[in-house]
Design a binder for these strands. Structure first.
Length: 584
DNA sequence: GCCGTTTTCGGCCCGACTGTTTTCAGTCG
């Protein structure tokens, strides 16, 4: 039985399903919340869930008492739970899908099921078309139309979107609305601001004396397909590609608290509100209050000061330990940020599958003010990417030298993204690898190996004396390919032991390592590089995604090797390989 | 179902918006 079916994601999913069924049953809302909070907690434990279960430490976790601890153990060890089976058996199998529709919550789904026997999306559509829904208490003609539209919407765009697809749209929208009449401050909030790797919509918060003109600017904007709702302070629209945008406009004195409120996460806010209660304060999007008195909160930082805590940057607001750290004053103040990155690590050129020449890449790196650029094309076995043979790699060095003479502003480093072969060996001879400034070792083929084989393969690559960096460690492609079944704890431990840095790959389709892995890698003592995985000149912008993903995982500037200047970076790599870097 | 230097019982964040309402319930974030 593969262990990964019962990992933390599986257990969390089961707990959330139980919560949904309990809502359908009309159970106590706080009981429902308890299951959801437990699911959050299990996910936060991540890779170590198996350890926590084995050592019987579940009930020590916040929000997990003895009853839930027992259920998690059963889910983890047996893959199911009597309670869950019972709940599933009392409803049609596809009923939970109904809850995915907008404006359809547990109460209404329960009504549809008990009154009409509607328990699936197709059954709902049929009932709607027969006009049977509108007669139901709480439903009318508008509900009918909305649900039909919702079914359509569900089919086309119910999946979450990758941050990389949404962030540019959100920032452009913000900059455009910033020019609407009377806007004082405006910012993107929500999961986009928290830099979550996938997001479901865009939240924008603005301040202005008059809300109406700003709301109107969004409603009238080209590219808006539907205005979903519009009130005195809020406007929701759906763009032509299906992306939902929620805009809220408030007086400037409320901007900071609103921005904070709509940035979330919910879990982070629950902690803050508990703290506020202890101090005799209440927090809402309208402000921080002591009794009737509204306290001034000109900036988000002021809100945290009122709570006697250090400021928590948006990326960290996930209740992943940041609350306790901010309270204790141990939250790092030197978290890495994009501007700290001095060198572009992991770049391809037309020598392999890059779309820009070595010269163009060097010029683009110089234009971005980068101090160095690692030329790391693919190695021979990556035939699909025109990987370099030993001979072609040597030829490339001549061009590196020639381009270096033409573009002296940026230091070009000889490198290679060498394939980790199926058995864990590296693709080119050691004698060649030893002459490089930097070797990134990556898995590109045979992702389907089982956990034992894949882990052994990567550990062997980490043991290779020439490996400097493990590239995109899990190989996942967001929404397209699952991470390989590596035992990450073992990978992190070995990488720390061998001094191999782990890449935080900033390609928006990868974001690999992701933030939770970054956190685990750091506590294992690993070093990181923020990789751009550039295949053209535009993808130097990936440095933002890499740095902010590392930041979300709690990485400090000193944890990321390419925050160092050129010589210090090379020294850091050579610490492990004294023989490296001798040019032949 | 969880939690506790106010509580082992009685809280648990809360406001905006919408539609079906004639005073409010449900959904959403």
């Amino acid at each position: 039985m593969p262990t990964d079916v019962r990992d933390s994601a599986f257990v969390a999913r089961a707990l959330r399903d139980i919560a949904l069924y309990l809502e359908l049953k009309g159970e106590n809302a706080f009981k429902v919340r308890a299951y959801n909070l437990a699911a959050d907690r299990v996910l936060a434990v991540g890779e170590r869930l198996a350890d926590v279960v084995r050592e019987g430490r579940l009930a020590e976790l916040p929000n997990i008492g003895q009853a839930l601890a027992d259920k998690v153990v059963t889910l983890h060890t047996r893959g199911t739970l009597p309670l869950l089976e019972e709940l599933r058996a009392s409803y049609p199998p596809a009923i939970l899908a109904l809850l995915e529709l907008p404006d359809l919550g547990p109460r209404k789904v329960a009504a549809l099921w008990t009154s009409l026997g509607v328990g699936s999306l197709p059954a709902l559509e049929e009932a709607l078309r027969q006009g049977r829904v509108r007669g139901l208490k709480g439903f009318g003609e508008k509900s009918e139309a909305k649900l039909l539209a919702g079914l359509e919407q569900y089919r086309s765009a119910h999946a979450r979107r990758r941050l990389g697809d949404v962030l540019p749209v959100a920032l452009a929208l913000r900059d455009e609305l910033a020019r609407a009449p009377g806007v004082v401050r405006i910012e993107v909030a929500g999961s986009v601001r928290r830099f979550c790797e996938t997001v479901s919509d865009v939240d924008v918060i603005a301040s202005a004396a008059e809300a109406a003109p700003v709301l109107e600017a969004l409603a009238q904007r080209p590219g808006v397909a539907t205005v979903l709702g519009k009130g005195d302070s809020k406007c929701s629209v759906r763009l032509q590609d299906g992306l939902q945008v929620d805009l809220r406009v408030l007086p400037d004195e409320d901007f900071a608290t609103a921005l904070h409120h709509f940035t979330g996460s919910k879990a982070h806010h629950v902690r803050l509100r508990g703290r506020a209660r202890d101090l005799g304060l209440t927090i809402s999007e309208w402000g921080v209050f002591r009794g009737e008195e509204k306290l001034a909160v000109p900036e988000e930082a002021a809100l945290y000061r009122l709570l006697g805590m250090a400021y928590v940057p948006p990326e960290l607001r996930e209740d992943a330990g940041e609350f306790e750290a901010a309270l204790a004053g141990t939250l790092p103040t030197d978290l890495v940020e994009p501007a700290d990155i001095q060198g572009a690590v992991h770049a391809h050129t037309t020598w392999s599958d890059g779309r820009a020449s070595l010269l163009d890449m060097a010029r683009a790196a110089a234009a971005r003010g980068l101090a160095y650029l690692t030329i790391t094309d693919h190695s021979a076995s990556a035939g699909y990417a025109s990987g370099l043979s030993a001979e072609r790699l040597r030829q490339q060095w001549q061009e590196v030298d020639a381009v270096q003479a033409q573009v002296p502003q940026v230091r070009l480093l000889r490198g290679l993204e060498v394939d980790i072969l199926q058995n864990g060996a590296l693709d080119l001879p050691d004698a060649l690898l030893e002459q490089l400034d930097i070797v990134i070792a990556s898995v590109h083929v045979r992702h389907g190996q089982d956990a034992d084989a894949m882990t052994a393969r990567v550990l062997r690559a980490l043991d290779h004396p020439c490996t400097d960096v493990l590239g995109h460690p899990t190989g996942r492609l967001l929404q397209r390919r699952e991470p390989s079944p590596l035992r990450m704890e073992e990978v992190f431990a070995r990488a720390a032991e061998r001094g191999v840095a782990l890449e935080v790959n900033g390609n928006p389709e990868r974001l690999d390592l992701h933030a939770a892995h970054v956190r685990a890698a750091l506590s294992a003592g690993c070093r990181l590089v923020a990789g751009v995985d550039a295949h053209d000149t535009a993808s130097f912008a990936n440095v933002d995604y890499a740095a902010r993903t590392a930041r979300k995982g709690g990485a400090r500037r000193s944890d990321v090797l390419n925050t160092l200047g050129t010589e210090a970076f090379l020294t850091a790599l050579r610490e492990r390989h004294p023989r490296r870097g001798r040019r032949g």
